[in-house]
Each structure stands twice: as C-alpha cells, then as structure tokens.
Write a protein that binds this DNA or RNA. Structure first.
Lengths: 138, 138
DNA sequence: CTTGCCTCTGTACCGACTACAGAGCGTAAC
DNA sequence: GTTACGCTCTGTAGTCGGTACAGAGGCAAG
C-alpha cells in the first residue's frame, strides 16, 4: 500500500490533511449539501469513506479552476441530475468567459494605474500625482 | 453654469446619480468612516457639500482602480495623517503587484481549463473529459 | 388631502469560507 | 486510575464590500 493510497475510514482532520484543505471547509461543504452526511462513530465523530474523498477532491479541483459553488453543484448533478458533456461544456465555456472578462478588467486597472503613477515621483512631499489625479475635477 | 457643475447642497440620491454609484453605498462609506457625517436639514435629511462630492469621487475612483477600502483610508490620510508621495507610491506598487498576481492566477486557470476541455466533445452523453479529469485518481 | 416618491433607521443578505467558544471524547503516559 | 493533551462536536460570528429591504416619516404636486 502506497503512502497516499486511500484508506476506508478517515477522520475529518485526516481528510483535510490529505487533500490540503481547511478542516472547517469540509463541514461547510456538508452543510451546503456538496458533500453527503458521512458515517459516524458511536460517539458521533465523522468517518469519511474513499468515495467521500473522491468527491471532495472533485469539489476542490473544480473550485481551484474557479468554478462557483453553484457550478460545482451542477457539475455534480445535484441540481438536475447528472449533466451531459454538452451541459458541462456550456458551463465551462461560460466560466471561461467570466475568467477572461476578469483578466481584461484587471489588465485595464493595471494600465490605468501605470498611467497615473507615471507622474508619481516618490518624494517625501505630500504632493502626489496619484492622489491629485483622483481628486481632479473632471 | 454647466450641466455637471457642482451645486452646494445635494441630497443623497442626487449625489449618487451624479457620481454613478449606488444610493446605499454613500451611507455605507459614512458608516465605515470614509465619508464624514454630512450636514442635515431640519428634518434630518442629508445634505452634501461640494467637498463631500469631491471626496466621494476620490473614493469611487480609487475603488475602481482596485484599491481596498483600507487602502483608500490610507490614501485619504485617515489612518496616519496625509501620506507622502513616497507612501502613496509604495501603496500603489504593492497594489499593482496584487493585481498582477491575480492576473497570473486567472491566466493559469484559463490555461488549465483549456487543457482539460480539449477532450470535451460536447456530446449529449454523460461521459465528459472535464468531469472525468476532476474525478481522476491522481 | 391624498398620492407618490423621497428619506430615514436598523438589519439581513450575498459568496465562500474561517475562526472561535464551550462541551465532549479518546488515548497514552504516569 | 487518572490526568493531560489533543481531537471532535455543535452553533454562531466574523471577513469584504457592498446591496436590499421593511417600516416609518417627510415633502411637494395636483
């Protein structure tokens, strides 16, 4: 058995440690219905199966690609049953559009900031091209 | 007097309309201390001076450049008195660094998404390269 | 005088977590 | 056996930057 091979029953902190997420995130995903309620020990401690681990990994990867929690819900088939490849593709294309818009917005911010800062001397005086620009009566 | 020339006393909705922000945003900035408490009519309605308008415009412009509310507080000299040009430059450079990191992160997301979607046929079947990839045991 | 729109206040909600308080459980050492 | 430590449980509050809404009151036109 390899070091990272799945084990049948993991506690919450073990699962979080393996997948590199915050401890509380797991409980949060359970609360909002992304993760099913796991098995419990007699005293009420959560026990995560290999399937739980696979599902959480899916969620974390989708989130790391920038999909929203609602998107993940759709990808998992929680809303309307398991989505077709066409559904997934549409969701992903829309998401990519969002990402590109956000990049464009940030690039514009960077460019504007660069323009305004061009006159910023960095002197120890209160006169500053940047603040002057923002106060300007345009 | 031009159409957009400043007028001494504006009501909240007039100010919001002129500067193109949400009505409630103004009250919010007052609450968190970015805007001072304005003058009031006898019955308690807010009246904004030309100076208030200049200050709000500064805040909105800074926010549109992506500065955080805390950054704006510093730029306005609310924290430690009016900042020097050197202070402003340092703040702006740090902020630009943040913007560029966010762009890099988004570009990586876009790239990864593109790679994964390459195998996505868009067929009406439940088999999908994207979801398969996220479920994969790696 | 009524109608309709403005303003006021406080509070709840958004997304996606994260943190913390206070209680209980599990186990290893002594 | 008991004590100490660390993990888990629950519910709730805080983060950021607003946005929305309820319920009350003001103000001007018709």
């Amino acid at each position: 058995m390899g070091i990272t091979s799945p084990r049948a029953e993991l506690k919450r902190a073990e699962l979080a440690g393996r997948l590199g997420c915050n401890l509380e995130t797991i409980r949060y995903y359970e609360k909002i219905g992304l993760l099913p309620e796991p098995a419990r020990t007699a005293s009420g401690h959560r026990l995560y199966s290999n399937g739980d681990q696979v599902r959480l990994r899916f969620i974390l990867r989708a989130r790391s690609l920038g999909f929203s929690v609602e998107d993940v819900r759709s990808l998992l088939g929680i809303n309307d049953g398991r989505p077709s490849c066409a559904d997934v593709k549409a969701l992903a294309e829309a998401h990519r559009g969002d990402i590109r818009k956000r990049i464009a917005d940030l690039r514009q911010m960077d460019r504007r900031l660069g323009e305004i800062m061009a006159g910023c001397t960095g002197a120890e005086t209160p006169d500053c091209a940047l603040t002057d620009n923002l106060f300007e009566d345009r």
